Every structure is written in structure tokens, then in C-alpha cells.
Amino acid sequence: MRVLGIETSCDDTGVAIYDQQQGLLANQLYSQGEMHSDYGGVVPELASRDHVRKTIPLIQAALAQSGLPASEIYGVAYTAGPGLVGALMVGATIGRALAYAWKVPAVAVHHIEGHLLAPMLEDNPPAFPFLALLVSGGHTQLIAVTGIGKYRLLGESLDDAAGEAFDKTAKLLGLDYPGGPMLARLAQQGVPGRYTFPRPMTDRPGLAFSFSGLKTFVAKTISTCANDHQTRADVARAFEDAVVDTLMLKCQRALDITCFKRLVIAGGVSANQALRVSLDRMMRQRNGEIFYARPEFCTDNGAMIAYAGMVRLQQNGTRTDLAVSVRPRWPLDEGLTFDV
């Protein structure tokens, strides 16, 4: 079974082809980061227009990379939500049209499910059940995963997602968009302990997150300290330490509740090295295992959508009809049945 996957939920255009036996045959990705950096964030209308320009050429490039004719594609998977409605409509429309023209099934994929399954693309995929920490620009969630389509939301952010807090704090430090990775690099030059920031919502029970107050605390600190490079690096280090410690503590609580021995981290922030090191150390101390995708599969990509579409078709033949429908807001705990 070979599935073509299309990802257009935000500002990355991803197209990939996944084969049930041979694995990933093609992976094409175009980032709009440079275009949106002029505005300090994603402009939805510009993102949609760029997806229109890039998706078809990337599909052609993926077919060429795999060496396959369209006649050997079994199904087309596309991200149907959550995400920016205009961007989602581009991928859904193209994906559904291709499936109709090629006479193959079309599969509407939940973006978060794609991230949760991204570590399955690696040589050592996790077995079920596992606890998943999804950390990205739009989501911070702890999810109990017991099988394909069997997801239970344990806790999530009440305001800013971790990735959003990284980007906003980076902007406060004068870093360009997307600021999260730039802040992480700056933090490597910071002196640990010079500043100590709060670990939000760790002083109370539960698995909810909140990062907006931490961002405000950082803003107040920046307004009262020097603006030299070392000070900004020290602030970045203190912020990153606070986020990492918060995520780690909540993971510990969730592991205690579920009694799971496997932890998966997914989403763009899962590429953060400080987070990986801390969680890896924690899981070794607990005699558990940790899994994550390679960096290029942590951010939005077509490979995770192709894989999720493949397992969905393999599992129960889930597909959509000719109607094109997307869900910009699609909570995971509402289930993954796509109602067209």
C-alpha cells in the first residue's frame, strides 16, 4: 500500500509518499518562514496563497523522487484540521481532487494524530501503550495513547502553547521569527542560575499547563535589566529551563497516573535539545523508554500525514467522499471520525 500525504495546516507545505513495505519513498517540504518573518508571525492569507503555488509542484517532485507513476498510488491523505482554514482548504481540495482523478481513496487526517505517529517513521518505533507529550506552536498536550485512534487527553495548556511562548519570548529578546529555535540556540550561551523564572502551575495538582504568565514574567525582567548579548542569553536560558522543568514535572505526574513505561515527545518543540536531554534522563531514572522523531519530522511535514493515512486505510478503510470539508478547530477528545 502506497499513500501520498499532503500537509498544509499552517506555514509549511509538505508532501510525501509512504509505502507499507518499503517505508518512506519521497519527502518534500517547503517552509514559508522567511516570508512570514517580515511580519513577525504567520499571515493566514499569505500562507494560503503560497500553498496554492507550492503544493502541486511538490507533489510532482515527490512522484519524481519516488520514481512512481500516479497509477501506483493507493490512497491520498491530507490534513483536514486543526489549522488555518484557508491553508487546510488548499490541501483538502487538491488531495480530494487527486483521489477522484486517480480513482483511489481519500483520507482526512487529524493533524495531531500525524504528530503522535511521527515517531513510527523511525527504525525503533514505540509500542502501544505510551504517554505522548505534544509540544508545538499551537498545542501543549499530554495524551494517553493505547492504539491507533485510541487517544485520551489528560491535560493541555489553558492559554499559550509552549511553542507559542518560545516565539513570543524570542520576540521580546529581539530575535527574528520563527524565534523558538533561535532562542534555544541563544540559551546555550546563557549562564544557568543567573535568573530564575517560575515553573507555572507546578505548585498545584493536575496536568494542565499555562505559559502566558511566564512570558509576562520574562517581559518584566527584560524591562529592568541590561540589553547586552550575555544578559539576553541568560534570560533565554532561564526561560528555557523553566519550560523544560514544567514539561518534565507534568510528564512525571502523567506517567505516575497511567503507569506507562514509554514516553513519546512530538511536535516542533520536541526537537529542542534541552528538553530531549532532560526527558531522556528522567526516563532512564524511571527505567522507561523515550521516543521521538528526527528533527525534520518534528515540525509539520507530509511524511507523518502519509503514514497516518496509510494506517487508517490499513486499519478500517476510513475515507471521505467527494465533499471537501475541513475543521480548523478539531479537539482530539472529540474523536477522529471525520464528519463530511
Rank of each mutant, 00 (worst) to 15 (best):
S31K: 12
I305L: 01
Q314L: 14
A101D: 09
L84G: 10
Q315P: 02
M283L: 03
L214D: 01
L332M: 15
G179A: 01
Q188S: 13
L279T: 03
T221D: 15
L186R: 13
P125E: 04
R96G: 02
G40A: 09
P192C: 08
L183F: 06
V243S: 06
M283K: 02
L175Y: 06
Q32S: 02
R284I: 00
R281M: 13
Q188D: 13
D339N: 15
G40F: 10
L63A: 08
G41A: 00
G180R: 07
R152M: 10
A161R: 02
A80Q: 07
R152G: 01
P192Q: 13
L24Q: 03
S71I: 02
G40Y: 09
R284Q: 15
A77N: 14
F130W: 09
T320W: 04
A236R: 09
A108Q: 08
V85P: 07
R185E: 11
G206V: 00
A92V: 03
G213I: 04
Y307C: 01
R329E: 08
V324S: 06
V43F: 12
V104F: 03
Q60E: 15
A80F: 08
Q60N: 11
L322W: 12
Y74W: 11
G86H: 01
A323H: 10
I112Y: 11
V277N: 10
A170R: 12
G288Y: 04
D280R: 13
F130E: 03
